[in-house]
Design a protein around this nucleic acid. Structure first.
Lengths: 260, 260
DNA sequence: GTTGATCCTGACGCAGGGGCAGGATCCACA
DNA sequence: TGTGGATCCTGCCCCTGCGTCAGGATCAAC
């Protein structure tokens, strides 16, 4: 029982134009009559059901063609890959929804327009996304994301301000030591007692800091608020002075590298 | 401080080609130098941040243009609409993932190929989707979806077969009454004692049945397995005979309409 | 033979740009 | 003042998955 395109289209629920399209792409090439009209037969129905099935899970016609033309031996792999693609676009949509939710949250609407709020949230998400690459997955979920989300926290911010005000102070002084101890207390409050996590976070931070000239603008802007380089150098010197006083290091070049 | 396209592109993270595209679409039309080169100024940065923000939540450049050109008074509405669109495509992706999951589930792989399994699942989902429109939301979630998913259940299937075998029997006979009571027991097992739900389900089923010639093929194929019309008419006649025997109705035309 | 329905191919359009080509400009240096 | 390399301009074709004509050929029935 041969069908002409119109019949076959009505039969399968596909439009005539789509069938012609599949023909041109080589997805489904029916026989032709002497005058060139397409002639679909019973086996083509199974073929079109396969095409529709793969299309329904979001596969491109290109890949569908490759799958149906070649052997179907790697079909399971193709389906797994398709699942991965779908999950990826799913997280993309979820992120867009989070952005919308955050931007339209009713808090603090007064000082800037909705568009500016939205832009700020988007740039923040970009910044977070680009930072994630520098950290191990565990370090990021346990520390990076909640930490960077509104970096720096009020406590760190206060500490940075105080350190900046004391940059000229002797690293061996009482005041300097106090600042160092405040920073270590904050670090412990963030990380807890997990030594491996602390190491992972430090490594991630190091990698991120190395690449700080490739950061997105929003992130650079945030870090420009404080003289992070000098703060890090100062706290490093204080640490060093403390170690030396306790006889743990002997020269300036042993066991210590500036954070910058 | 005016910028040329290259600078501005580097500054904003947008490609030169995209900036030219936005210009042509009227999204961001910078000034031009005498020779025709684009000259971006400080205020254009805010504009491009707005464009990127709206694009990041998936809005089309067309709508972005309409929003930025007209007043921003309906921006909240546009964002709500965008959220709805995102949620819609989210459910689409979720459905595709469900399809993939069902088709690649390890059960019963032997009798048909993976592609045929996938096609069957897709067609089933289409059928369910088209049925949902006939039912109220509550009736669908509480009854329609679990019921149609593998319609008919084994118990109904057995009942239908038995009714078909007894279509010639006297509607007032013992055997006919037994079949009617089985059907009412099954109905109660499905619906429970919620009278409003039962009414909603009956209405939805009625609407669906009215439009049964527009059903997708898969659904029609399933229903063709039994002579639903005659089964419904027969059970209706049995019900009627039972009522008449108990003196609840007096004529053939009172208070009863065939299900068909 | 005619006529209305169906079918063919090819071109253009959609969104959001990427890539390339051919030509014009700009900027610094000699 | 010239010149060379970097930058910029426009326009065209490419991608996906078809929809939508347009102009012409073919089919099926009377």
């Amino acid at each position: 029982m041969p069908y002409r395109v119109g019949e076959f289209a009505a039969l399968t629920g596909v439009t005539v134009r789509a069938l012609q399209h599949y023909d041109r792409l080589g997805l489904l090439t029916p026989k032709r009559s002497d005058s060139g009209h397409r002639i679909y037969v019973e086996t083509d129905r199974r073929r079109v059901r396969h095409i529709l099935a793969l299309r329904a899970v979001g596969m491109s016609l290109q890949r569908i063609g490759d799958l149906l033309k070649g052997s179907a031996s790697d079909l399971p792999a193709a389906l797994r890959a398709q699942r991965a693609r779908l999950e990826q676009s799913q997280t993309g949509i979820e992120e867009a929804l989070r952005i919308l939710q955050q931007a339209t949250a009713p808090e603090g609407k007064g000082d800037e327009s909705l568009l500016d709020r939205l832009a700020a949230v988007v740039e923040m998400q970009d910044a977070l996304e680009s930072m994630r690459g520098y950290f191990s997955d565990e370090a990021w979920t346990k520390w990076g994301e909640p930490y960077f989300h509104d970096w720096p926290s009020a406590a760190w911010r206060a500490l940075f301000r105080d350190v900046e005000a004391s940059l000229g102070v002797d690293p061996g002084s009482e005041r300097a030591l106090e600042l160092l101890e405040r920073s270590m207390a904050l670090w412990h409050a963030d990380i807890g007692s997990d030594a491996a996590l602390g190491r992972a976070v430090r490594e991630g931070y190091g990698r991120a800091w190395q690449a700080r000239d490739r950061w997105p603008r929003e992130l650079r802007r945030r870090f420009r608020e404080f003289k992070i380089d000098e703060i890090g150098r100062f706290l490093g010197a204080v640490q060093m002075a403390s170690w030396r006083r306790r006889g743990l290091v002997h020269t300036y070049t042993t066991g210590f590298r500036s954070t910058a």
